[in-house]
Amino acid sequence: MAAEFDTGRFRQLSELLGRKFVTGVEDFGYGAMLFVESVMWLLAGHWMQQRVRLAAVAQEMVTIGVQAIPVVTILAFANGAMMAMQGIYTLRDFGAESQVVTGIAMSVTREFGVLIAGIVVAGRSGSAIAARIGTMQMAQEIDALRVMGISPVRYLVSPILAAMLVMMPLLAILSDSMAILGGGAISGIELHISLETYLSRVFAVLAPWDIFQGLTKSVVFAVLITLVATSNGFNASGGAEGLGRATTRSVVLCIAAIVVADMIFTFFLSR
């Protein structure tokens, strides 16, 4: 009897794992298809007489990028300040607290600046995009677009992708700058070095590759956030509760995707 029970449970577990795996592969395929199609519309839309409208891209750039500036500024500045505090506290034991400048400059430009920008955009826009497209899906607005001969990918996804690809690197640069300034403020207080000296040390330490590394990640984050948020919106179903689920799933997956992608990139780019 116990053996039968265990077999049944094992089968259920196997089925569940199999279903999850297949769903994961389907989601990945769907995201890849969205990416290819939205890039195709961006590049060939004009030729196909369905160009992606610049006004829509500009509107998305404001929503995704400009409106995220205050949050990115505050979070990045605070993060830079915290890194400086922790760095000085740790390095003081070795009498090397002045090396904190090197630590901040490298880790912010390579890692934390872009990560903060990514998490802010994932939290703000990842949920908003999924909610907007999900609501349109449930109100048959997506069907209305299709039957009007308007590709929903061209109309909804391509402007978001274009805006993300422009704004994410800019937000990453802003985030880098603010985090370095935050570190500079604490260094000034704790180590009594002027901002000018602090910045000259930062620029002496940084190489173009460090900034390029962060910018490369920001492009990858832009694509990931766009695909995860839009695909969750398109697949939303089940009324208000389903929309809530899709929105939450979008934010969680966006953040998980950029953190994992960041780790993989760091592994390969730091070798």
């Binding site: 196909m48 369905q50 349109m136 109100a139 048959q140 069907d143 209305a144 039957v147 009007m148 001969g149």
Partner: peptide, 22 residues
């Protein structure tokens, strides 16, 4: 896809809930 896009210009649809863009 292109032929469908052209075909769809010849049809109009009124959905149950209207499906106006909010």
């Amino acid at each position: 896809t292109r032929e469908w896009m052209e075909m769809r210009k010849k049809i109009g649809v009124s959905f149950q809930g209207g499906a106006l863009f909010n």
